[in-house]
Simulated scan of single mutants.
Amino acid sequence: MGIPDTFKALSDPLRRQVLIMLKSGAMTAGDIANALGISAAALSYHLNLLKKAELLMEYKQKNYVYYELNTSLFDELVLWLKQFGGEENEK
Score class of each variant (00 low, 15 high):
Thr71His: 08
Thr71Gly: 05
Leu10Val: 12
Gly37Ala: 06
Glu90Met: 02
Asp5Gln: 11
Gly86Phe: 06
Val18Gln: 01
Thr71Ser: 08
Gln61Ala: 06
Arg15Leu: 06
Leu49Thr: 01
Tyr45Arg: 15
Ser72Gly: 06
Gln61Leu: 13
Glu88His: 06
Leu81Met: 13
Lys91Ala: 04
Tyr59Ala: 00
Lys23Gly: 09
Ala33Leu: 08
Pro4Leu: 03
Leu49Phe: 02
Asp75Trp: 08
Tyr59Met: 10
Asp5Leu: 09
Thr6Trp: 04
Gln83Asn: 10
Gly85Pro: 01
Ala26His: 07
Gly30Phe: 01
Leu56Ile: 08
Ala29Leu: 12
Gly37Asn: 11
Gln61Thr: 12
Ile20Leu: 13
Tyr66Ala: 01
Thr28Glu: 03
Ser39Ala: 05
Leu43Ala: 02
Leu69Tyr: 08
Glu58Val: 00
Trp80Cys: 13
Glu58Met: 10
Ile3Ala: 12
Asp5Gly: 09
Leu22Met: 13
Ala29Pro: 00
Ala35Phe: 04
Trp80Ser: 15
Ser39Pro: 01
Ser72Lys: 15
Gly2Val: 02
Lys8Phe: 12
Asn89Tyr: 00
Thr71Asp: 10
Lys8Ser: 13
Glu88Met: 04
Leu77Cys: 13
Asp75Lys: 11
Leu49Lys: 15
Arg16Trp: 04
Ala42Asn: 10
Gly30Glu: 07
Leu47Gly: 05
Leu56Ala: 05
Phe84Leu: 09
Tyr59Val: 04
Val78Phe: 05
Arg15Met: 02
Leu36Gly: 03
Lys91Pro: 03
Leu50Thr: 00
Leu43Glu: 02
Gly86Ser: 07
Met57Ile: 04
Lys51Asp: 03
Asn34Lys: 15
Ser39Asp: 05
Met1Trp: 09
Lys51Pro: 01
Tyr66Trp: 14
Asp12Met: 07
Gln83Ser: 12
Lys51Arg: 14
Ala9Gln: 02
Glu68Met: 15
Leu56Gln: 09
Gly30Cys: 02
Gln61Lys: 14
Ile32Tyr: 03
Met21Cys: 06
Asn48Phe: 09
Tyr45Phe: 11
Phe74His: 06
Gln17Asn: 10
Ala35Ser: 02
Ile3His: 07
